[in-house]
């Protein structure tokens, strides 16, 4: 039976270590207490981009830079520079299609990941 002095269990494992290393290879004693996370903004390192089945692509010619897509994107994946549409954050964009849906200028298309190189090829053909 385990109790009393010298028992390795008499430690609150993880407590106070403020470890930033949370990964599923760590044994229970090395994980943070109760799964607490000590790094602010850590959702940035959780890449949800690979959840995507459809990918938004931007048509620069049609875009009127109203930034409605930026306001609606639930994953903050529209990158804006100098108050203008810049690009998608594909590391985090989940491909929900909301941006394409709300865009008044139909400047965003949702395509499959395979479609993209295909389209490019087609474009080349047209040339």
């Amino acid at each position: 039976m385990t109790s009393g002095v010298g028992n390795p269990c008499n430690k609150n494992f993880g407590q106070g270590r403020r470890t930033k290393a949370i990964n599923s290879d760590l044994p229970w004693k090395e994980l943070t207490k109760a799964g607490n996370i000590y790094e602010p903004g850590n959702s940035n390192s959780y890449e949800t981009g690979d959840w995507r089945t459809l990918k938004p692509v931007w048509n620069e010619e049609r875009c009127i830079h109203c930034l409605i897509c930026w306001r609606y994107c639930p994953d903050a994946s529209i990158i804006v520079t100098n108050e203008k549409f810049d690009s998608f954050d594909y590391k985090h964009c989940k491909g929900c299609g909301i941006c394409a849906n709300v865009c008044p200028a139909h400047a965003i298309d949702m395509i499959t990941e395979e479609q993209q190189p295909l389209k490019k090829k087609e474009a080349k053909k047209d040339e």
Binding site: T2, S3, G4, V5, N7, C9, N10, K11, N12, F13, G14, L26, P27, W28, K29, L31, K33, A34, G35
Partner: peptide, 16 residues
């Protein structure tokens, strides 16, 4: 599972 195990350790430590 690991976090549950931590709770058991805390309970064990609570005896002392």
């Amino acid at each position: 599972f690991e976090h549950r195990r931590q709770q058991v350790a805390a309970m064990e430590a609570a005896k002392k």
